[in-house]
Design a protein around this nucleic acid. Structure first.
Lengths: 210, 210
DNA sequence: CATGAATTCAAACGTACGTTTGAAACGCAT
DNA sequence: ATGCGTTTCAAACGTACGTTTGAATTCATG
């Protein structure tokens, strides 16, 4: 029963894969970090690829419980939207050095591999469904599903920018200025207010045309 | 005078770097595509890294002239915003297989390397400035620069989502549904309308508090 | 304690990569 | 045609990688 070896390898692999990506990570570095022999990866997982998939799986199994997104049903939809955005931004940004679980999932989002579809199914999909149901509370029932998808994408697009294009942002407006914006609740406030009006706008124009 | 060799190499390099990224691209593949000898890269550029930087440079020098963004000064700011968004979306999405110039710049945005700062300075920066000046036409002068930056980020965040997270989108809502949304002017319409209200919202709340 | 399967280990294999080399081919002024 | 700097070429070098191997070790079970 050497499950402890397997988990040590997965932890080390998650860390290294998160930092360097699949191709740039080497099993030698992973094994050194896990303090196991080189051949252990082949023995326990088969090859590098299978280890990677296990690491991604582990990323969204362990990571999810961090602070689950539980939104009280009785609050108005506007407040739910704020909770959602704030939770998403916290997950992505609010750590000194984010745990490899998040980092690895973000990497998988940026450049999907085989492990991606499962990640979408068991992690991203459920979150997206929550957002969709919040949006559905705010728009008339007559609005088409496509329009609601666009609204959801507009919300998450604003959030993801700060995760995926941070270096560009710093180069664009300067390090200090950009970092000074980088307060989760400040950003969440902005995105939420911006989006609330946008959502109203679309549902207004839909009602007018129906 | 073997400038033609250099340009053949840069073209091939741009293509391969765009498709596979810096690390995954091999100079052997580049040389084969360019139909030059292996040693040509070292002779003309020094090493792989310097070739990459030259390729990125070339990407935003040649690529820029495609269809320059010229917005007539007399149209209302709302229309300027639409032009901007539509131009950005067209650049990023509206090609069967996008020219390597765009692809390479997008790759550099997703994971910046040494070549990034120059890309920001000479390509992204100017575009961002245009967006900022459009926003400045729409908000009261009293609004802070930070708030205007947030507004600009909200606009481009919505646009970039469709470029960088297309595979996720397809997995989330289904291939056909997602691709059916993928019409540049339809998306630009949505993002523009969504953003116009968002921008108004922020400037309203600013005026109320000032 | 003895036995056999499960696990670990050091070492090596084969391959692919970026880079270097030294000679050959070319272009061009004399 | 001769000589010389520039450019191309086939071949090799050194290194790092994923993977494999077969022996050594550990461990549970009888």
């Amino acid at each position: 029963m050497s499950e402890i070896t397997k988990t040590r390898i997965i932890d080390a692999a998650g860390e290294v894969f998160a930092e360097k990506g699949f191709e740039q990570a080497t099993i030698r570095e992973i094994c050194k970090l896990a303090d196991v022999n080189l051949a252990a990866i082949n023995y326990h997982f088969g090859d590098k690829q299978k280890l990677y998939i296990e690491a991604v799986k582990s990323a969204h199994c362990e990571g999810e419980e961090d602070e689950p997104l539980l939104i009280p049903a009785e609050v108005p939809a506007e407040k739910k939207l704020y909770y959602f955005i704030e939770h998403m931004m916290t997950d992505m940004l609010d750590r000194e050095s984010p745990t490899w679980h998040v980092e690895l999932m973000m990497r998988e989002m940026a450049r999907p591999t085989l492990a991606c579809s499962e990640l979408v199914q068991s992690y991203i999909g459920p979150k997206f469904s929550i957002l969709m149901s919040i949006i559905e509370e705010m728009v008339p029932a007559t609005i088409s599903l496509s329009k609601k998808h666009l609204l959801a994408f507009s919300v998450v697009g604003q959030c993801l920018l700060y995760r995926f294009h941070r270096p560009i942002g710093k180069l664009l407006i300067g390090d200090e200025e950009f970092e000074s914006l980088f307060d989760v609740s400040y950003l969440a406030d902005h995105i939420c207010e911006f989006s609330l009006r946008g959502i109203q706008s679309i549902s207004d124009s839909q009602e007018a045309s129906s």
